[in-house]
Amino acid sequence: MASTPKSFRDIQNQWARLFVESLANEGVITGFPNRTFRPDTSVTRAEFAVILTKTFTKLKKKRDYIRFIDVAAHHWAAKAIQTAYAIGFLNGFLNDRFFPDSRISRLEVLLTLVKGLDLALKVKPEKLATLQEIYHDTNLIPDSAITQVAIATSAGLVASYPNTKLLKPNIPATRADVAVSVYQALFFMGEVQKIPSDYLVVPPQPQTELEHASL
């Protein structure tokens, strides 16, 4: 049986506590039988698929499901993986593999949300200051992902603990990381209330023509 939010005994002083509790109240994420949430544990692709399908229940199918040879019909997350693929979030790899037990990176979480929610149609990254002004480790972001990271940042999906100047794109995303980014996606969509946090990345606002003139 999953723990209730208030009984998570390992998040009381955790930076993402309010986000975790909010999503747990909605049944999007759950804890463990020993009344813990394990916020610093990394997340697998299968686990992320489950979170996505529990969160974005209103999204319509975009494509037919392709059977992955490493996701058996009796796999505990098979249905969620099929749905997450069909609604346009998670992709597979060569040779029809999904790698359900692989750890998903912080970058992959952001790219998945940007893609699945079609944020490129809703956010204009050119209005965002260069990523070098926001993150000190932009050299770790693949060139092919720069625009999507800019979109995710502009949409408010990025949180980074304890230093918001470090994106840390290639390390495995923790359960806390995923909870915050998913919650922020819901906030961007207008479905939840704002939760203040010192660890949400707030991009600098572009200067107006009047501000430029006064320099």
Score class of each variant (00 low, 15 high):
residue 38 R to I: 10
residue 83 T to A: 09
residue 6 K to W: 11
residue 115 K to Q: 15
residue 36 T to Y: 08
residue 59 L to R: 08
residue 5 P to W: 06
residue 18 L to R: 15
residue 213 A to D: 06
residue 50 V to C: 05
residue 133 E to F: 12
residue 202 V to D: 13
residue 154 S to F: 10
residue 102 S to D: 14
residue 45 R to D: 02
residue 127 K to Q: 13
residue 92 G to L: 01
residue 57 T to G: 03
residue 137 D to L: 04
residue 105 S to L: 01
residue 174 T to C: 06
residue 113 L to M: 10
residue 39 P to T: 04
residue 120 A to E: 15
residue 14 Q to I: 12
residue 20 V to H: 02
residue 58 K to C: 09
residue 194 K to T: 04
residue 13 N to G: 11
residue 152 A to P: 06
residue 124 K to Y: 13
residue 53 T to Q: 02
residue 208 T to V: 04
residue 76 W to H: 06
residue 93 F to N: 03
residue 208 T to Y: 05
residue 86 A to Y: 05
residue 54 K to S: 12
residue 83 T to S: 11
residue 152 A to Q: 03
residue 36 T to P: 09
residue 17 R to I: 03
residue 149 V to D: 03
residue 107 L to F: 11
residue 118 D to V: 06
residue 149 V to A: 02
residue 109 V to Q: 03
residue 163 N to I: 14
residue 2 A to C: 15
residue 68 F to I: 08
residue 83 T to I: 12
residue 32 F to W: 12
residue 74 H to T: 11
residue 119 L to K: 02
residue 167 L to F: 15
residue 198 D to V: 03
residue 131 L to Y: 02
residue 29 I to G: 07
residue 195 I to A: 09
residue 170 N to C: 03
residue 25 N to R: 12
residue 95 N to H: 13
residue 29 I to H: 01
residue 131 L to G: 03
residue 78 A to M: 05
residue 146 I to Q: 14
residue 151 I to M: 01
residue 171 I to V: 14
residue 128 L to N: 08
residue 102 S to F: 11
residue 206 P to F: 07
residue 214 S to Y: 10
residue 101 D to K: 12
residue 52 L to R: 00
residue 16 A to K: 00
residue 196 P to S: 12
residue 215 L to Q: 12
residue 153 T to Q: 09
residue 92 G to C: 05
residue 56 F to H: 07
residue 53 T to P: 01
residue 129 A to P: 06
residue 192 V to Y: 11
residue 23 L to W: 09
residue 212 H to F: 10
residue 43 V to H: 00
residue 127 K to H: 13
residue 118 D to S: 13
residue 102 S to M: 13
residue 58 K to G: 11
residue 31 G to Q: 07
residue 147 T to Q: 15
residue 49 A to Q: 00
residue 38 R to K: 15
residue 161 Y to C: 08
residue 98 F to D: 00
residue 9 R to P: 01
residue 178 V to L: 04
residue 152 A to T: 00
residue 8 F to D: 05
residue 105 S to Q: 01
residue 148 Q to C: 00
residue 120 A to G: 14
residue 93 F to K: 01
residue 190 G to M: 11
residue 170 N to Q: 10
residue 182 V to E: 04
residue 164 T to C: 02
residue 80 A to D: 14
residue 116 G to T: 01
residue 15 W to A: 00
residue 23 L to Q: 07
residue 43 V to W: 04
residue 165 K to L: 14
residue 177 D to S: 08
residue 108 E to D: 15
residue 92 G to P: 00
residue 57 T to L: 08
residue 38 R to G: 00
residue 164 T to W: 05
residue 13 N to M: 11
residue 108 E to T: 08
residue 212 H to E: 13
residue 20 V to Q: 01
residue 202 V to S: 09
residue 136 H to S: 15
residue 84 A to E: 06
residue 132 Q to H: 11
residue 157 L to F: 09
residue 28 V to E: 08
residue 1 M to E: 14
residue 209 E to I: 12
residue 115 K to C: 05
residue 93 F to C: 01
residue 7 S to F: 13
residue 6 K to R: 13
residue 61 K to T: 11
residue 163 N to D: 15
residue 41 T to I: 11
residue 212 H to C: 07
residue 129 A to M: 04
